[in-house]
């Protein structure tokens, strides 16, 4: 078990410092690049938890598409170079601190309440649960209704985006 602990500590340290980089950096593009590190670290943690499929979905969707769209949007609008970008700061620092502490508290309380006493061991059952086949069976047999609801929601969002973007 200690290998996992060490790997988790290294990852947590990297993710934590990159996350601080996201909010501290004065340049929007740098912030987006720090976000890449944060998301890649999250993918690595999924692998530690034997959720391989989820990990690579995270890489493909979040790094390969979402962050690319962020960068694309930033560069298409103003692409700040060196020295610019100090306008990024605003006066909501303390409100942000309060909100993030609140979210942290809620998450800790939830996780302790749900899994507090359990000790999850790395085993072949766990690895098999993370396999693509079992993930697919779960989605399309057990959770097929939520899956369809989510896909309708995404479709509605897509149509909405088209409607908002079209001027005529």
């Amino acid at each position: 078990m200690w290998e996992q602990q060490v790997a988790f500590s290294v990852l947590a340290l990297a993710i934590g410092s990159a996350a601080i980089g996201v909010v501290r950096s004065r340049n929007v593009v740098h912030a987006a690049l720090f976000l890449v590190v944060v998301l890649a670290g999250a993918a690595a943690i999924y692998i530690l938890l034997a959720a391989e499929f989820t990990a690579w979905v995270q890489v493909l969707i979040y790094i390969g598409a979402v962050v690319i769209l962020f960068l694309f949007g930033i560069m298409l609008t103003r692409a700040p170079m060196r020295g610019e970008g100090s306008r990024l700061d605003n006066d909501q620092r303390w409100a942000a601190v309060v909100v993030s502490l609140f979210v942290l508290g809620v998450l800790i309380a939830l996780l302790v309440d749900a899994f507090g006493g359990q000790d999850i061991h790395f085993s072949h059952t766990l690895v098999n649960l993370g396999r693509t086949g079992s993930v697919g069976r779960d989605i399309f047999r057990v959770y097929v209704v939520p899956f369809e609801v989510v896909s309708m929601l995404l479709l509605a969002a897509l149509v909405g985006a088209v409607v908002l973007a079209r001027k005529d």
Binding site: L33, V36, W56, V57, V59, L60, I63, G64, A65, V67, I68, L71
Partner: peptide
């Protein structure tokens, strides 16, 4: 395909 999409970054 997921890691090949990283080159865009």
């Amino acid at each position: 395909l997921a890691v090949s999409s990283l080159s865009v970054v």
